[in-house]
Simulated assay, not measured.
Amino acid sequence: MTISATQMLVVTAVLLLLPSPGSAKDSNDTVPLVLWHGMGDSCCNPLSMGSIKKMVEEDVPGIYVLSLMIGQSIIQDTENGFFKDVNEQVAFVCNQLAQDPKLKDGYNAMGFSQGGQFLRAVAQRCPSPPMKNLISVGGQQQGVYGLPRCPGETSHICDWIRKKLNSGAYTDMVQKHLVQAQYWHDPLNDDLYKKHSVFLADINQERVLNETYKKNLMALEKFVMVKFLQDTVVDPRGTEWFGFLKTGQAVETETLQESALYTEDRLGLAQMDKAGKLVFLESDGDHLQFTREWFTAKLLPYLH
């Protein structure tokens, strides 16, 4: 049976709210947590980000959890996940974090789906306040080449997005006004991607080497990446572990360790890997589906 993305959020929320032993921590020694939601979601949806925020606050007493709202309302926040320039979103978040006195000594970050790659951009571009651990839950770190099940299941929006991506993902108009185009990674048009991708090609060092990006990312204590083994939303799934399709075709994939990004170490990921800073986790479920027990066992340790 096929379930919609909206149903997926409900299932996830129900699983998260099941009783769990949890693991408490002294409230005088907690690291703040910043959350960034995925496409079709919002900061405060009680069936998704709201339940995650509540769960973390229950398991880590005294923790400050900031769930990012991109815009002035929940409706704006949801719409901006589809239509607001990602570079503007990242700048907005960087400014918000810099002005929050509760984050001045550092924070952990957890991004869900596209929020995972957006928070990596924050880590690379905005080192103050310092991000300690970055947790990407189903984040498309090498972008996507396909949008099989657009979250939110708002069919007219998803159909429109697919048409725009297929007709001209790298045109100036589409790049400027469609979030998903800004991390569309077409292995059959590598030159177009590198030249015209306004977001992903930049943060992945595809054009010029920005040593500051590399230095800032390497300052992380841990970079945790979660891949969902039955993911029907993200294509290819390997992007959740920084892998992708081999350039020039759309069938064979390569791992992060096999990629030029790693062998040339353009982002410092090879050095981080050797230093034990990269953590590759998996969940045997569809996109963003996990239990509270899995979350507590696998992710909670990186929030302390």
Rank of each mutant, 00 (worst) to 15 (best):
Y107E: 12
D105T: 08
N166W: 05
Q175E: 09
R149K: 09
A109R: 10
G115F: 07
G138A: 01
P148H: 00
D105P: 07
Q175T: 06
D172L: 01
C150L: 04
P127I: 00
R149G: 00
D172H: 04
Q99M: 08
G106L: 02
D159E: 13
C126M: 07
F118I: 15
A123K: 10
Y107V: 08
C126F: 08
K176Q: 13
G143F: 01
N95F: 04
K84V: 07
A121E: 14
A91I: 14
A121V: 12
G106R: 02
N87K: 14
Q96M: 10
Q89A: 10
L134H: 14
N87W: 00
G106Q: 04
G116H: 11
Q96L: 15
R120M: 14
V144H: 01
P130I: 04
D85T: 15
D105Y: 15
R125V: 13
R125Y: 15
K176S: 13
Q117N: 13
I157G: 02
S167L: 02
P151C: 07
Q175G: 03
Q114D: 11
G152Y: 08
G138M: 01
M110F: 12
K104S: 15
G111L: 11
K132F: 04
A169T: 10
S155D: 12
L165F: 06
P127L: 00
F92D: 11
A121L: 06
D100C: 07
V86D: 07
M110E: 02
W160Y: 13
K102L: 09
R149F: 04
S136M: 03
G111Y: 12
D105M: 13
D172P: 12
K163Q: 11
E153Y: 15
N133A: 02
K102N: 06
Q142R: 07
W160F: 12
G152W: 10
T154V: 14
G111K: 09
F92I: 06
D105C: 06
G116V: 05
I161P: 09
S155R: 11
A169W: 12
L103V: 09
A98G: 07
P148R: 03
A109Q: 06
P148W: 00
D100H: 08
M173S: 15
I157P: 08
F118L: 15
Q89V: 11
M110Y: 08
F83E: 04
L165G: 06
S113D: 04
M131L: 08
V144S: 02
P148G: 03
F118C: 14
R149E: 02
A169S: 13
G143Y: 02
C150T: 08
V122M: 08
Y145G: 02
K132S: 01
C158P: 05
S155Y: 10
E88D: 13
V144R: 01
R149S: 02
R149N: 04
I135M: 11
G116E: 14
K102S: 05
I157W: 04
D159H: 09
V90T: 15
Q175K: 05
V137L: 11
D85M: 13
A169P: 10
R162M: 03
V174W: 00
P130D: 03
P129A: 00
N166T: 03
M173R: 11
P129I: 00
G106S: 01
G168C: 01
C150F: 12
D105L: 13
L103Q: 10
K132V: 04
P127T: 01
